[in-house]
């Protein structure tokens, strides 16, 4: 049986349906109307021990709601969740020892106490003995440079410091399952790199990780499995590299020419490719499939039309693929 298992998981929120303005607000006091919004819609998900899963989707797709259902914070409208065979809603205390949750937009640190005190509370809450605590803290120091953060009061932390401290807080009890919800939101590049490095060490130690992020840089090189959710439904669940291979077929050759090449002329010279206007009339973008055409072919087809001053090739990243999935331009088959 999988370590994390969701079957037909559904969450429906009820929202007041008010007409705009004062009139609507007053009317709502007397005539209460509500609309149901299905945030998570019959989601089936099963994650094995040691997997690192990227859970992505546009804003409002139901990512965070899924994480809250999987960690037992929200009660599902229907369907069920099992973590290591236990229900996080019914066996809350037992499950809480097995999961660690980081919400990038929230902190669990005590506002007016130094970080070290917040962590000490968690040590006692999870019943971690002092030897183990010291060992884990030493590791956090090594990868997250936590030492400099420990004496700082919760409310005086910078965002980067706060996120590192919150990561330590979420992982202090070495849970076998970790949910990371937007763990790098708002961080600068240097801190982001360090945090991502830390995720890799966590994964390499065998921890099961489910990562939700809008920053696909968090995902590449970290997660092997990609799950895409949109409007509460899972629309793709499969291997991340396979998606990349399948949809990274496309290349864009950006060309700068000495004299203006009319788009029609370029299109006539390259019937198999899509020609787009560039930033100036002297720039062109040629979109082609690398299995039917080569960059050399494109260059030699354009050469008779004008002198080429410069060119470069764009490889689409997983980000482009996912952006096209969100916009409905691309439908992935798992």
């Amino acid at each position: 049986m999988a370590l994390v298992e969701a079957r037909q998981l559904t969450k429906v929120f009820r929202r007041p349906d008010k007409d705009p303005g004062m009139r609507g607000a007053v009317k709502h006091l007397f005539v209460r109307r509500f609309v149901d919004k299905t945030a998570v819609d019959h989601v089936d998900l099963s994650i094995d021990a040691g997997e690192a899963v990227a859970y992505v989707g546009p804003n409002g797709a139901g990512k965070s709601t899924t994480v809250k259902l999987l960690s037992g914070i929200l009660q599902p409208t229907s369907g069920e969740v099992r973590i290591d065979g236990l229900s996080p809603q019914k066996d809350r205390i037992a499950v809480s020892h097995r999961i660690g949750v980081l919400f990038g937009q929230r902190t669990q640190l005590w506002w007016d106490l130094p970080v070290s005190e917040s962590l000490a509370v968690l040590r006692d809450v999870y019943g971690i003995d002092h030897g183990t605590y010291r060992r884990r803290m030493a590791r956090f120091e090594e990868v997250l440079e936590l030492g400099e953060v420990l004496p700082v009061l919760g409310r005086k932390l910078s965002l980067g410091q706060r996120m590192r401290a919150d990561l330590a807080a979420a992982l202090l009890h070495a849970p076998p399952v970790v949910y990371l919800d937007e763990p790098t939101i708002g961080l600068d590049l240097a801190v982001k790199d360090r945090v991502r490095q830390f995720f890799r060490t966590v994964r390499d130690e065998g921890t099961t990780v489910m990562l939700t992020s809008h920053d696909l840089g968090d995902i590449e090189g970290f997660c092997r499995r990609l799950v895409i959710i949109d409007e509460g439904r899972i629309i793709f669940d499969g291997d991340l590299e396979a998606v990349k291979d399948a949809f990274a077929r496309e290349r864009i050759l950006n060309v700068q020419t000495e004299t203006v090449v009319p788009l029609e002329a370029a299109r006539a010279a390259l019937p198999g490719a899509a020609i787009e206007a560039g930033e100036t009339p002297l720039h062109l973008g040629v979109r082609f499939d690398r299995f039917t055409m080569t960059a050399g072919h494109v260059v030699s087809a354009l050469a008779p039309l004008a002198n080429l001053v410069d060119f470069n090739v764009d490889e689409p990243s997983i980000e482009d693929v996912i952006r096209r999935v969100y916009s409905g331009e691309l439908v992935l088959q798992p």
Partner: peptide
């Protein structure tokens, strides 16, 4: 503030 969410994933 929704901090209660984080309390619910603790063994307390």
């Amino acid at each position: 503030s929704g901090l209660v969410a984080l309390d619910l994933v603790k063994p307390v």
